[in-house]
Design a protein around this nucleic acid. Sequence first.
DNA 1: ATGGCGCGTCAAACGCGA
Length: 260
Amino acid sequence: MKVTTWNINGVKARLESALAYLRQESPDVICLQEIKSQTEAFPAAVFEELGYQCAIHGQKGFNGVAILSKLPLEEVRTGLPGNDEDMQSRFIEAVISVPSGIVKVASIYAPNGNPVATEKFPYKLGWLERLHAHFRDLLAEEVPFVMAGDYNIIPEPMDAKRPAAWTSDALFQPESRAAYRRMLSDGLTDAIRLCHPGPGVYTFWDYQAGAFQKDDGIRIDHLLLSPQATDRLRAAGVDRFTRGWEKPSDHVPAWVELDV
DNA sequence: ATGGCGCGTCAAACGCGA
């Protein structure tokens, strides 16, 4: 079972790329972020033609997440628990049926948090706390789950080509990094890091300044696995080739392969 | 050394991202 995550930066702008990617790589499940589409406007029919069921949590203009699955998709939940005031569409999860039972999959789009001196940064940290509280509940269920998405966190200096350039950025603040570490110390595994322990593994390159040509990237898209999912982890990777396609997203897909 | 983009909204700039 292959589970992929991809911040596509607009599902309408990226429709041809997304379809090309799915035809080529054929993941069983793909978690999308920044669909920038209302739920009703999501082009579900074209994905269904490729054999995917769609669970969508959109909003007007910004944000928006989705899970597309070739395997039976059940018990869809939208919205991160813990704050009824939060209207931003950044979380969706579903139960996926697999031969050995179930796998829970969440598509998450954590807040960027910039500028740090504004209310955006505490919103980011609060959101991450809510995410942590939610998966702590899931851990108690002792089921395999994958929380995949754009965490907007550079975990370590080795996850940036130029870490010094990010020191004042919300993505690399000590508080952001600490929130990520707490999730790992609480039992989740960073699958990409486990399978690729060295530096130079990036998932995002800015559109500006020829960042991709200079490989001036950062690793901010992550797949965090529960212990039961980690037991089944066969491989993980990043598909950086899509960044070289016409009209690319600034993020590339990252994936895990699980024995299920 | 610096700055260099792109999407969506909406019809010209602007909010937002990272």
